[in-house]
Write a protein that binds this DNA or RNA. Sequence first.
DNA 1: CACTCATTGTTGAAAGATCAACTATCATCG
DNA 2: CGATGATAGTTGATCTTTCAACAATGAGTG
Lengths: 182, 182
Amino acid sequence: MTAEDPRWLSPGELRAWTRLEAVAELLPVALDQQLQRDASLSHYDYLVLAKLSEAPGRTLAMSQLAAATNASLPRLSHVAARLEDRGLLGRRRSPEDRRTTLATLTESGWRTVQATAPGHVAQVRRLVFDRLSAEQVDQLDQIALAVLTALDPDGRLEARCTATQEAVAPGRPHTPEGAGSQ
Amino acid sequence: MTAEDPRWLSPGELRAWTRLEAVAELLPVALDQQLQRDASLSHYDYLVLAKLSEAPGRTLAMSQLAAATNASLPRLSHVAARLEDRGLLGRRRSPEDRRTTLATLTESGWRTVQATAPGHVAQVRRLVFDRLSAEQVDQLDQIALAVLTALDPDGRLEARCTATQEAVAPGRPHTPEGAGSQ
DNA sequence: CACTCATTGTTGAAAGATCAACTATCATCG
DNA sequence: CGATGATAGTTGATCTTTCAACAATGAGTG
């Protein structure tokens, strides 16, 4: 029935796993709390707005936005409906392919991201990067990439490409320059 | 108004962060799916049963169990109620301190953990440890510990201690030896 | 002993996520 | 052109999580 003992985790692996589980459980909670308190947004809400803010024309198709935020389309659809009700984004049918819905950040949504980004980045720094050496940041990147390769074998997710960088002015992550452009 | 530019993330940090976000989003989903499919358990359900299975007498107070599983007490309470309905664990008042509730794994719960552990470990291996070198496992452990220190400054969580090891026979994580004991 | 406060846990309502339909558009092929 | 199937997105039911009360016990203090 069983093979020859399914290979258990070694003590070192087990310790790393226990800690990774704890981080995976607690980090999202900590991010949610800061954003909820300061902007009444969940971490996922923020991610949606941030990805739109980086996109050309501050606009993305729902399916692209879902991929960019690592989420299912149904989940995004519900979230987008709520964000639309709050006036932070707008949705309209694409003229070219009328199946696709284009989501665009509104002015209000843009201002919300602008206002919220510094506090969020500060939280990310406080929880993660202030604790890590430059070497560890590289190591984390490599490790996360390796795990992502298993999680997303087909390479659908944008987080696997290095291309993410291009959408962002170096050193200025979530705030493209044209702040005043309508 | 703004300070002197809240320090943004460097390109390297941003890339690592994007990937970590993706892992934190997708890894729990992947774990849930395997466990849901094979045992109708969420990852958190499994964690509750697994922690109980490692505890002396297969019993823990609810608050200890909440800490061991990195969750809030209300969350655990609801989950425990469902697991109790399914006959996987039992709850009773402690005779010593009648505020505390002691949760104990039932025989059925024990068998469920036994039957489920190999598949779960295989999934963890497939998604994480098969992709990492021994060095990277160490690095991951150190990085996760650093982040946990920020997430849990008071050290309430057991994942921060190395002590987790003691509860587990080396090389045999979720299955203490007395497998046949009725 | 009575009062107060902290600890432990449960509960119910509201918000959020998941899953399985379902609609609508497009693409392919006979 | 009509049929088939794939792609894009929404919706509603169901389940889970969260949050704010609440109850009950214990500990400390005058």
